[in-house]
Write a protein that binds this DNA or RNA. Structure first.
Length: 298
DNA sequence: ACAATTTGACCGGA
DNA sequence: TCCGGTCAAATTGT
């Protein structure tokens, strides 16, 4: 219960920071020089991301501590290897046996997907695996946050090249960054025109999200996603589905901001800013999102 | 020397 | 048993 209070406080903090960022970005519209503004915005973004990540990880740790849990010392004893074992490519049986049950497969919660022209997203990722996927032309690459050890950050990323002939990547994010220094490695807000969104003078370009991005929450197999449909409809103002609150929480805030900005740049008739404003101004929606989080983790 | 990546084996859910 | 996610030794890069 005390945790819930802390969680709410944390999320409210995040909302307040987002309000500040919003007014900052609005102020930016009236300014031509945006260097100091973008620095401020970057700091605010860090605060926001920290608040949301903190709240989410609080919830994760209290409700389902094992979701992302890895055992502290999963590895078998390699010191006892005989010289023969050490030189053969094969691992000794004892080592293999001690690895049994050494990790738990994560559930497919706290994930969201997006399509992007680049794998670069401002976070520092380290590749830890690659797999050929059945019936897929391209392998899937597995990344974890570089700060997994330093800060215990449990964020994971899966990247697979799309088979539709484009050079887009299908990126799945699992978990949230809890490392504190995320945006200093490339998530920089600048407000120069992006070639693909030249209509908007206030486009955040250095977060790698393309205007065609459409993100979805995926928490069950039944919610299969036709990526190509989503990409095509993302630029269709009439079919563009409203962002939902679970998307707000499941996605990273950079994507959220890009999406809002993107729809703005597409001069959609329905003000997508409304969704952000709703979140910023409506305490009921905050409670609603908390309820959603509670359910999704239960 | 240390960090990052590659790659084949292991693991568990379906 | 299959398939995809993860581990960790070996290899490569800085």
């Amino acid at each position: 219960m005390e945790n819930n209070t802390r969680l709410i406080e944390t999320l409210i903090r995040g909302r307040d920071f987002t309000k500040q960022l919003q007014s900052l970005l609005q102020r930016k519209d009236n300014l031509d020089g945006s260097v100091s503004v973008s620095v401020l915005a970057e700091d605010l973004l860090m605060e926001i991301l920290g608040s949301f990540s903190g709240g989410i990880s609080m919830l994760s740790s209290t409700v389902s501590g094992e979701i992302y849990g890895f055992p502290a010392s999963p590895v078998g004893n390699l010191v006892d290897k005989s010289p023969e074992e050490a030189h053969s490519g094969k691992k000794p049986v004892s080592v293999v046996k001690e690895r049994r049950g050494c990790y738990k497969r994560r559930r497919t919660i706290d994930s969201y997907e997006k399509i992007s022209v680049t794998m670069e997203d401002g976070f520092a990722w380290r590749k830890y695996g690659q797999k050929e996927i059945h019936n897929s032309k391209f392998p899937r690459c597995y990344f974890r946050c570089t700060h997994k050890h330093g800060h215990g950050c449990k964020a994971l990323e899966q990247v697979q090249k799309m088979e539709d002939g484009s050079n887009n990547y299908h990126i799945t994010y699992l978990g949230h960054h809890t490392c504190p220094n995320l945006s200093h490695h490339g998530v920089v807000l600048d407000f120069e025109n992006h070639p693909n969104v030249s209509d908007s003078p206030s486009t955040i370009t250095n977060i790698h999200i393309d205007p065609s991005i459409k993100q979805e929450v995926v928490d069950s197999k039944d919610q299969s996603i036709d990526i190509s449909d989503n990409v095509s409809s993302a630029n269709d103002v009439n079919s563009s589905s409203p962002i939902s609150w679970n998307e707000v929480f499941m996605g990273d805030l950079g994507s959220l901001i890009m999406r809002v900005d993107n729809e703005d740049s597409c001069t959609t008739s329905t003000s997508s800013h409304g969704y952000l404003n709703d979140f910023l101004n409506n305490d009921d929606l905050l409670s609603e999102s908390l309820l959603f989080l509670d359910q999704s983790h239960g």
